[in-house]
Amino acid sequence: MSLTERWLSGKRVALFLLLMPLLLYLFFLILLPHLEILNISLRERVSYGVYEFSLGNYQAFFTEPLYWRTFLRTAVMSVLTTAITLVVAFPIAWYIAKVAQGKSRSVLFLACLIPFWVSELVRTYGWMILLRETGVISSLLQTLGLVDGPVEMLYNDVTVMVGLVYTSMLFMVVPLVSTLDGLDDSLVEAAYDLGGNGWHALKEVVIPYAMPGIVSGCIVVFMLTLGNYLTPTLLGGKDSLWFTEQIFTQFITRFNWEQGSAFGILLLVLSSLMVWLGLKLSRQSFTEAMGR
Protein backbone atom coordinates (compact mmCIF):
# COMPACT_ATOMS: atom_id res chain seq x y z
CA MET A 1 0.00 0.00 0.00
CA SER A 2 1.43 3.37 -0.95
CA LEU A 3 1.64 6.17 1.58
CA THR A 4 -1.22 8.13 0.03
CA GLU A 5 -3.45 5.09 0.02
CA ARG A 6 -2.73 4.41 3.66
CA TRP A 7 -3.43 8.01 4.53
CA LEU A 8 -6.67 7.86 2.59
CA SER A 9 -7.86 4.69 4.28
CA GLY A 10 -6.99 6.16 7.68
CA LYS A 11 -9.07 9.18 6.76
CA ARG A 12 -11.90 6.86 5.73
CA VAL A 13 -11.87 5.05 9.04
CA ALA A 14 -11.94 8.36 10.91
CA LEU A 15 -14.87 9.56 8.81
CA PHE A 16 -16.70 6.31 9.41
CA LEU A 17 -16.12 6.41 13.16
CA LEU A 18 -17.33 10.00 13.37
CA LEU A 19 -20.35 9.38 11.16
CA MET A 20 -21.60 6.33 13.05
CA PRO A 21 -22.76 7.98 16.31
CA LEU A 22 -24.61 10.74 14.46
CA LEU A 23 -26.29 8.35 12.04
CA LEU A 24 -27.34 5.99 14.82
CA TYR A 25 -28.71 8.93 16.79
CA LEU A 26 -30.59 10.44 13.85
CA PHE A 27 -31.96 7.09 12.78
CA PHE A 28 -33.08 5.69 16.12
CA LEU A 29 -34.00 8.81 18.07
CA ILE A 30 -35.31 11.17 15.39
CA LEU A 31 -36.24 9.50 12.11
CA LEU A 32 -37.77 6.17 13.18
CA PRO A 33 -39.70 7.58 16.17
CA HIS A 34 -41.31 10.23 13.99
CA LEU A 35 -42.20 7.71 11.30
CA GLU A 36 -43.66 5.62 14.08
CA ILE A 37 -46.06 8.34 15.25
CA LEU A 38 -46.99 9.03 11.63
CA ASN A 39 -47.76 5.34 11.29
CA ILE A 40 -49.76 5.21 14.52
CA SER A 41 -51.73 8.29 13.55
CA LEU A 42 -52.88 6.58 10.35
CA ARG A 43 -54.43 3.53 11.95
CA GLU A 44 -57.50 2.63 13.91
CA ARG A 45 -57.97 -0.09 16.49
CA VAL A 46 -60.44 -2.65 15.26
CA SER A 47 -60.21 -5.03 18.19
CA TYR A 48 -57.56 -5.92 20.76
CA GLY A 49 -54.17 -5.85 19.04
CA VAL A 50 -55.70 -5.57 15.55
CA TYR A 51 -55.29 -2.34 13.61
CA GLU A 52 -56.47 -1.08 10.28
CA PHE A 53 -55.39 1.81 8.06
CA SER A 54 -57.65 4.79 8.60
CA LEU A 55 -57.78 8.54 8.33
CA GLY A 56 -60.30 8.60 11.17
CA ASN A 57 -57.98 10.34 13.62
CA TYR A 58 -57.50 13.26 11.26
CA GLN A 59 -61.17 13.28 10.44
CA ALA A 60 -61.94 13.52 14.16
CA PHE A 61 -59.71 16.57 14.34
CA PHE A 62 -61.60 18.41 11.62
CA THR A 63 -65.10 17.41 12.72
CA GLU A 64 -64.73 17.96 16.47
CA PRO A 65 -64.85 21.74 16.99
CA LEU A 66 -63.00 21.53 20.32
CA TYR A 67 -59.94 20.06 18.61
CA TRP A 68 -59.53 22.38 15.68
CA ARG A 69 -60.53 25.44 17.66
CA THR A 70 -57.89 24.63 20.26
CA PHE A 71 -55.39 24.18 17.45
CA LEU A 72 -56.23 27.54 15.85
CA ARG A 73 -56.28 29.26 19.21
CA THR A 74 -52.84 27.89 20.08
CA ALA A 75 -51.47 28.96 16.70
CA VAL A 76 -52.90 32.49 16.90
CA MET A 77 -51.80 33.01 20.49
CA SER A 78 -48.30 31.77 19.64
CA VAL A 79 -48.00 34.22 16.75
CA LEU A 80 -49.26 37.01 19.00
CA THR A 81 -46.81 36.06 21.75
CA THR A 82 -43.96 36.10 19.25
CA ALA A 83 -44.94 39.55 18.00
CA ILE A 84 -45.31 41.00 21.49
CA THR A 85 -42.02 39.47 22.61
CA LEU A 86 -40.27 41.05 19.62
CA VAL A 87 -41.74 44.48 20.30
CA VAL A 88 -40.91 44.36 24.00
CA ALA A 89 -37.43 42.88 23.52
CA PHE A 90 -36.21 45.13 20.70
CA PRO A 91 -35.67 48.31 22.76
CA ILE A 92 -34.01 46.24 25.50
CA ALA A 93 -31.67 44.60 23.01
CA TRP A 94 -30.88 48.02 21.51
CA TYR A 95 -30.16 49.38 24.98
CA ILE A 96 -27.80 46.52 25.80
CA ALA A 97 -26.05 46.58 22.40
CA LYS A 98 -25.80 50.34 21.82
CA VAL A 99 -26.62 52.45 24.88
CA ALA A 100 -25.18 50.68 27.92
CA GLN A 101 -21.43 50.95 28.31
CA GLY A 102 -18.77 48.76 29.86
CA LYS A 103 -19.74 46.90 32.98
CA SER A 104 -23.42 47.79 33.08
CA ARG A 105 -23.70 46.29 29.64
CA SER A 106 -22.60 42.82 30.71
CA VAL A 107 -24.57 43.06 33.95
CA LEU A 108 -27.78 43.82 32.03
CA PHE A 109 -27.08 41.04 29.58
CA LEU A 110 -26.55 38.60 32.45
CA ALA A 111 -29.74 39.80 34.12
CA CYS A 112 -31.62 38.82 30.96
CA LEU A 113 -30.13 35.35 31.16
CA ILE A 114 -30.97 34.70 34.82
CA PRO A 115 -34.63 33.67 34.45
CA PHE A 116 -33.60 31.21 31.78
CA TRP A 117 -31.31 29.38 34.15
CA VAL A 118 -34.17 28.83 36.56
CA SER A 119 -36.72 26.16 35.74
CA GLU A 120 -39.84 27.28 33.88
CA LEU A 121 -41.83 25.70 36.68
CA VAL A 122 -40.28 28.11 39.18
CA ARG A 123 -40.91 31.12 36.95
CA THR A 124 -44.54 30.16 36.47
CA TYR A 125 -44.92 29.49 40.18
CA GLY A 126 -43.64 33.03 40.79
CA TRP A 127 -46.35 34.45 38.55
CA MET A 128 -48.96 32.38 40.37
CA ILE A 129 -47.87 33.80 43.73
CA LEU A 130 -48.00 37.31 42.30
CA LEU A 131 -51.30 37.11 40.48
CA ARG A 132 -53.66 34.77 42.30
CA GLU A 133 -56.59 35.82 44.45
CA THR A 134 -54.58 35.67 47.66
CA GLY A 135 -51.49 36.80 45.79
CA VAL A 136 -49.06 39.63 46.30
CA ILE A 137 -50.55 42.08 43.80
CA SER A 138 -54.10 41.47 45.00
CA SER A 139 -53.00 42.06 48.62
CA LEU A 140 -51.12 45.20 47.70
CA LEU A 141 -54.07 46.63 45.82
CA GLN A 142 -56.29 45.97 48.83
CA THR A 143 -53.82 47.53 51.24
CA LEU A 144 -53.61 50.61 49.06
CA GLY A 145 -57.41 50.77 49.05
CA LEU A 146 -57.63 50.61 45.28
CA VAL A 147 -59.97 47.63 45.34
CA ASP A 148 -62.51 46.39 47.86
CA GLY A 149 -62.08 42.64 47.75
CA PRO A 150 -59.52 40.13 46.49
CA VAL A 151 -58.84 40.22 42.74
CA GLU A 152 -58.27 37.01 40.80
CA MET A 153 -55.80 37.68 38.02
CA LEU A 154 -55.03 34.08 37.12
CA TYR A 155 -56.93 31.91 34.66
CA ASN A 156 -57.43 34.30 31.79
CA ASP A 157 -55.82 34.73 28.40
CA VAL A 158 -54.00 37.96 29.21
CA THR A 159 -52.21 36.30 32.09
CA VAL A 160 -51.28 33.31 29.94
CA MET A 161 -49.88 35.74 27.39
CA VAL A 162 -47.84 37.60 30.01
CA GLY A 163 -46.41 34.30 31.20
CA LEU A 164 -45.56 33.17 27.69
CA VAL A 165 -43.89 36.47 26.79
CA TYR A 166 -41.91 36.33 30.03
CA THR A 167 -40.70 32.81 29.38
CA SER A 168 -39.73 33.60 25.78
CA MET A 169 -37.97 36.89 26.41
CA LEU A 170 -34.43 35.59 26.60
CA PHE A 171 -34.65 33.72 23.29
CA MET A 172 -35.48 36.99 21.57
CA VAL A 173 -33.06 39.28 23.42
CA VAL A 174 -29.94 37.16 22.85
CA PRO A 175 -30.06 36.87 19.03
CA LEU A 176 -31.11 40.53 18.77
CA VAL A 177 -28.21 41.74 20.90
CA SER A 178 -25.73 39.66 18.95
CA THR A 179 -26.84 41.04 15.57
CA LEU A 180 -27.30 44.64 16.74
CA ASP A 181 -23.81 44.45 18.22
CA GLY A 182 -22.36 44.30 14.74
CA LEU A 183 -24.27 47.32 13.43
CA ASP A 184 -21.89 50.15 12.67
CA ASP A 185 -23.05 53.37 14.38
CA SER A 186 -22.01 55.39 11.36
CA LEU A 187 -24.73 53.73 9.28
CA VAL A 188 -27.36 55.16 11.62
CA GLU A 189 -25.62 58.53 11.61
CA ALA A 190 -25.58 58.48 7.82
CA ALA A 191 -29.34 57.96 7.80
CA TYR A 192 -29.73 61.12 9.89
CA ASP A 193 -27.21 63.05 7.80
CA LEU A 194 -29.20 62.22 4.72
CA GLY A 195 -32.17 63.95 6.29
CA GLY A 196 -33.98 60.99 7.78
CA ASN A 197 -35.58 60.99 11.20
CA GLY A 198 -35.49 58.29 13.86
CA TRP A 199 -38.29 56.35 12.25
CA HIS A 200 -36.55 56.32 8.85
CA ALA A 201 -33.29 55.17 10.40
CA LEU A 202 -35.10 52.39 12.19
CA LYS A 203 -37.05 51.27 9.15
CA GLU A 204 -34.35 51.62 6.50
CA VAL A 205 -31.18 50.81 8.39
CA VAL A 206 -31.62 49.14 11.76
CA ILE A 207 -34.41 46.66 11.05
CA PRO A 208 -33.00 45.37 7.74
CA TYR A 209 -29.63 44.98 9.44
CA ALA A 210 -31.13 43.13 12.41
CA MET A 211 -33.33 40.89 10.23
CA PRO A 212 -31.30 37.69 10.72
CA GLY A 213 -31.51 38.11 14.49
CA ILE A 214 -35.21 38.95 14.33
CA VAL A 215 -35.94 35.85 12.28
CA SER A 216 -33.99 33.41 14.43
CA GLY A 217 -35.45 34.94 17.59
CA CYS A 218 -38.98 34.73 16.22
CA ILE A 219 -38.58 31.13 15.09
CA VAL A 220 -37.27 29.95 18.44
CA VAL A 221 -39.88 31.90 20.42
CA PHE A 222 -42.71 30.64 18.23
CA MET A 223 -41.55 27.04 18.56
CA LEU A 224 -41.20 27.25 22.32
CA THR A 225 -44.58 28.91 22.75
CA LEU A 226 -46.36 26.45 20.50
CA GLY A 227 -44.88 23.52 22.39
CA ASN A 228 -45.33 25.06 25.82
CA TYR A 229 -47.40 23.21 28.34
CA LEU A 230 -46.61 24.46 31.84
CA THR A 231 -47.41 28.13 31.37
CA PRO A 232 -50.84 27.74 29.73
CA THR A 233 -51.94 24.98 32.12
CA LEU A 234 -50.77 26.60 35.34
CA LEU A 235 -51.66 30.21 34.52
CA GLY A 236 -54.67 29.47 32.36
CA GLY A 237 -56.24 26.81 34.52
CA LYS A 238 -58.51 24.05 33.29
CA ASP A 239 -59.97 25.98 30.38
CA SER A 240 -56.71 27.22 28.96
CA LEU A 241 -57.19 24.97 25.89
CA TRP A 242 -53.64 24.65 24.66
CA PHE A 243 -52.96 22.13 21.93
CA THR A 244 -50.05 20.38 23.68
CA GLU A 245 -52.48 19.74 26.53
CA GLN A 246 -54.69 17.80 24.12
CA ILE A 247 -51.72 15.68 23.09
CA PHE A 248 -50.83 14.91 26.69
CA THR A 249 -54.47 14.11 27.50
CA GLN A 250 -54.72 11.63 24.64
CA PHE A 251 -51.44 9.96 25.55
CA ILE A 252 -51.52 9.98 29.32
CA THR A 253 -55.14 10.13 30.46
CA ARG A 254 -57.03 8.46 27.64
CA PHE A 255 -54.36 6.08 26.32
CA ASN A 256 -55.57 6.96 22.84
CA TRP A 257 -52.16 6.98 21.16
CA GLU A 258 -53.71 7.01 17.69
CA GLN A 259 -55.50 10.31 18.26
CA GLY A 260 -52.54 11.74 20.20
CA SER A 261 -50.12 10.88 17.39
CA ALA A 262 -52.38 12.52 14.83
CA PHE A 263 -52.38 15.67 16.96
CA GLY A 264 -48.61 15.45 17.24
CA ILE A 265 -48.22 15.21 13.47
CA LEU A 266 -50.57 18.17 12.97
CA LEU A 267 -48.57 20.25 15.43
CA LEU A 268 -45.36 19.26 13.68
CA VAL A 269 -46.81 20.26 10.31
CA LEU A 270 -47.90 23.62 11.68
CA SER A 271 -44.53 24.37 13.25
CA SER A 272 -42.58 23.29 10.16
CA LEU A 273 -44.83 25.45 8.02
CA MET A 274 -44.26 28.51 10.19
CA VAL A 275 -40.48 27.98 10.27
CA TRP A 276 -40.44 27.58 6.49
CA LEU A 277 -42.56 30.71 6.06
CA GLY A 278 -40.29 32.71 8.35
CA LEU A 279 -37.20 31.64 6.43
CA LYS A 280 -38.84 32.29 3.05
CA LEU A 281 -40.01 35.77 4.01
CA SER A 282 -36.59 36.74 5.28
CA ARG A 283 -34.67 34.81 2.58
CA GLN A 284 -32.55 32.95 5.09
CA SER A 285 -31.43 29.37 5.11
CA PHE A 286 -32.36 27.00 7.91
CA THR A 287 -28.76 26.34 8.94
CA GLU A 288 -27.97 30.06 9.12
CA ALA A 289 -30.97 30.87 11.30
CA MET A 290 -30.52 27.93 13.66
CA GLY A 291 -26.76 28.01 14.01
CA ARG A 292 -26.86 31.38 15.64
Partner: peptide
Protein backbone atom coordinates in the same frame (compact mmCIF):
# COMPACT_ATOMS: atom_id res chain seq x y z
CA UNK B 1 -37.51 23.01 15.80
CA UNK B 2 -39.47 20.00 17.02
CA UNK B 3 -41.62 20.78 20.06
CA UNK B 4 -40.47 18.84 23.14
CA UNK B 5 -43.79 17.09 23.57
CA UNK B 6 -43.54 15.57 20.09
CA UNK B 7 -39.98 14.35 20.72
CA UNK B 8 -41.37 12.76 23.89
CA UNK B 9 -44.33 10.96 22.33
CA UNK B 10 -42.34 9.79 19.30
CA UNK B 11 -39.58 8.25 21.42
CA UNK B 12 -42.24 6.71 23.67
CA UNK B 13 -44.17 5.22 20.74
Amino acid sequence: VIPGVILGISVLA
